[in-house]
Design a protein around this nucleic acid. Structure first.
Lengths: 189, 189
DNA sequence: CGAGTATCGCACTGATCACTGCGTCAGCTA
DNA sequence: TAGCTGACGCAGTGATCAGTGCGATACTCG
C-alpha cells in the first residue's frame, strides 16, 4: 500500500509512461478476450509490444499487475456529481456506477483482479467509490440535511450494484440504480 | 450446465467418489493457503494424492474444477429456517449466511472461483442462495402476509452480504446481517 | 549541451505445465 | 462368483513460463 508503482514516482514521463500505458491496455484487452485465466506475463508483454522482462521487473506478479490496472480503471471514471441535494447526487452517481459496471470488459477485469489479486485486488476494484460516497454525504451534512451513515449507504448502494455486476449475469440499469437511492433515503421521492 | 460432473452419474460409489472428495478437499486447502493464483492441476493432484491425469480427465480446466468445488461448497451449508414468520426466517438465514461468509477459506475459494470460473464460477458462488430466499418469501406469501419481491430482498440482503465479504476486508457479523432484514421489512422491529 | 542514472531489450536456463496412448485395477451387474 | 465396463495410474513429450546477468538506450538534471 506504500508504493504500488514505484517506477512512476521517479521517472514519470517519456518511455516509462508509454510502456505503462501499453501494458495496461494489453491487460484490459486480454482480460476481456480470454475466457478467464490464461493471463500470463509473456502474453501481456507480447500484446503490449514490450519485452516480458520489463513486465516482470515493474510488476512482480500478475496479481499486482491486475491490481494496478484495476486501481487505474476504477479511479476517475466516475466523478462526484454536485446537483445541490444528496438525493440528486446519489441518483446520478448510482446511475453512473451502474453504467460503468455494465461494461463486460470492466466486469472481466474485476473478476480477474479478484481472483489473482486477493485482498489487495478486491480493494482496488472498489477504487475510491466509498470515498466518493463519503464526500457526498459529508457535503450534505455541511448543508444541514439529514444524512445516513456511509456504512449504510454503502450497504444500500454499492452492495446491490456490485453484487449484481459480479454474481448475476444481468447488471442493473440506471433506472434500477436510481431506485436504490429511493430505498435508502426516506421521505418524498 | 448439462453435466458438470459426468463421472458421478454412472459410477457414484467407491473410488470415484473418494477421488472426487480428495480433490475437492485439496482445492479448498490450496486456495486457502496460496496467496491467490498458483493453483495448478499438478499441485491439486499432489495434495490430493491423485495422479494429475485424473484431474485433467474429470475436470477439463482449473476453472471448471473451481466452479465444481464452489457449487458443492455453497450448496447445503446454509439451510432454510422455518421460524413461523418471514422476519424470523430472514433474520436467522442472513445471520447464517454472514457467519458462513466470515470464513477466510470460503472467501478465498469464492475469489479464486470468480477469477478462474468466469460467469459460471460466479453463479456457482451464489449456490442456491436466491432459491432459498425465494422459498422463504413464497412460504410467507402462502401464509397471506405482505412480502417483498425476491429481487428486492436479494438487493437488500445478498448484495450487502456478498459485497462486504468480497470487496471489504471486514465481513459483516450476525447482528449486522439481522439489521439488514429490519431495513428490508417495514413495520415494527 | 553533457553527465548520470534508471529503465528497457536480448539471450539464456531451469522448471513446470498441459496433454496423450496404453496397461491395470476397481466397481457394477447377472 | 465371473464378466464387463469405465476410471485410474504410469511414462513420456512438446511447449510455455518464471526468473537472471549484461549491454544499450532514453530520460532527467545541472
Amino acid at each position: 500500500m506504500t508504493a504500488p508503482v514505484p517506477a512512476l514516482a521517479t521517472r514519470p514521463g517519456g518511455r516509462s509512461a508509454r510502456v505503462r500505458a501499453a501494458v495496461h491496455r494489453a491487460v484490459a484487452e486480454l482480460v476481456a478476450e480470454t475466457p478467464a485465466d490464461g493471463l500470463t506475463v509473456p502474453a501481456v508483454a507480447a500484446r503490449a509490444g514490450v519485452h516480458p522482462t520489463t513486465v516482470y521487473r515493474r510488476w512482480r506478479t500478475v496479481g499486482e499487475l491486475l491490481a494496478d490496472v484495476a486501481t487505474s480503471r476504477f479511479s476517475g471514471e466516475v466523478v462526484v456529481p454536485d446537483t445541490g441535494s444528496l438525493r440528486g447526487d446519489l441518483r446520478r452517481w448510482a446511475a453512473d456506477v451502474a453504467t460503468d459496471l455494465a461494461d463486460p470488459d470492466v466486469l472481466a477485469l474485476m473478476r480477474a483482479t479478484l481472483g489473482a489479486g486477493g485482498q489487495q485486488g478486491a480493494c482496488a476494484c472498489r477504487g475510491d467509490r466509498e470515498n466518493q460516497l463519503a464526500a457526498m454525504i459529508e457535503r450534505e451534512r455541511a448543508r444541514g440535511g439529514p444524512v445516513p451513515t456511509v456504512e449504510r449507504a454503502a450497504d444500500a448502494l454499492l452492495g446491490p450494484l456490485y453484487y449484481r455486476a459480479v454474481f448475476l449475469d444481468a447488471p442493473g440499469d440506471a433506472d434500477w440504480a436510481r431506485g436504490l437511492v429511493e430505498l435508502l433515503l426516506p421521505g418524498p421521492g
